Amino acid sequence: MARHAAARVPSALLRHLRVLRPQDAVGTYAHPRPEFARLVRAGALHQLATGYYAVVPDDHVGDQWLPALEAAAAGIAAADEGIAAVALMGLSAARVHGALPRAIGVAVVAAGRHRSALHLADRDATVLFVRRDVTRLDVQRYPHELGEGWITTVEQTVLDLAARPELGGLRDEAEAAARTLLLRADAAVLDELATTQRRQATLRRLRTTA
């Protein structure tokens, strides 16, 4: 389906992150919210949640495009706090690392400030925000369909899942993912992280039950 030029997202808004909020467009539109609604109707924007919109890739305009939950969660968090301040963790990191075989209805993001869970508008899913200093976590780059961001490494994810398996409401899946990732983790890095983050007892318990 062709899209009229007037229905395109202005290039000034197309930066490294493809999740937009109406307040991001105050310098582009006099009234951003009606303009965003128009772009949604035209298929140029996809509403993720109240106040958050993803830029639809040109080759998906007219399709029933739905970004991955993990990409949506990372993009929403980064839109509010900046890419450097947030990272996927826990169940979401396990999912990206391939330790969860099925899609789940919850995403977990480490963020710099406390905030309530966010329910998505485009699917039955929830984003949980955990207040953590991302600079103190072991993270790696996470390129995704809505830009790029950070995700906890395999080793950090192992420790997080083992320490808080109930986070996200899928304890069995979290514990299974921790055991799966433990087999792939660098033992020396894992020991160092456990010592630095005072999680030696957590790691010992996991290794005992793995």
Rank of each mutant, 00 (worst) to 15 (best):
V26W: 09
A163K: 14
L100I: 15
H114K: 14
A93T: 09
L120Q: 08
I83C: 04
P143N: 13
A42I: 05
G62S: 11
V40K: 06
A42Q: 10
Q156E: 08
L91C: 01
L159S: 06
V106G: 04
V26G: 01
V86E: 08
T152E: 02
A163L: 06
D58K: 05
A125F: 12
L159R: 06
R132P: 01
G43P: 08
P57D: 13
E81K: 01
A103H: 12
V96K: 00
E70L: 01
L66W: 11
Q23P: 01
A72N: 05
A125V: 09
R164H: 12
V127M: 02
R95S: 13
R102P: 00
A110S: 07
G82S: 13
A85S: 14
T135S: 13
H46G: 00
E155W: 06
A110I: 12
R33F: 00
L88A: 15
R132C: 01
W65P: 02
A107D: 07
V86H: 11
R164N: 05
E81P: 00
G82R: 14
V96C: 04
V139T: 15
R33G: 00
A103N: 09
R113V: 10
Y142K: 01
R115K: 15
F36H: 03
D58M: 02
F129Y: 15
S92H: 08
A103K: 10
P34T: 09
V109I: 14
R115A: 08
L66M: 14
G112K: 12
A163N: 07
R33V: 11
G90A: 09
V96M: 10
R131K: 15
R21T: 08
Q23T: 12
T50C: 00
L159I: 09
A125N: 12
A78F: 12
Q47P: 02
P165C: 02
V61D: 02
A85H: 15
V154E: 02
Q156S: 03
V154F: 04
P165D: 04
V61Y: 10
L161M: 03
L137A: 05
G112D: 07
R21I: 05
L161N: 09
P101S: 07
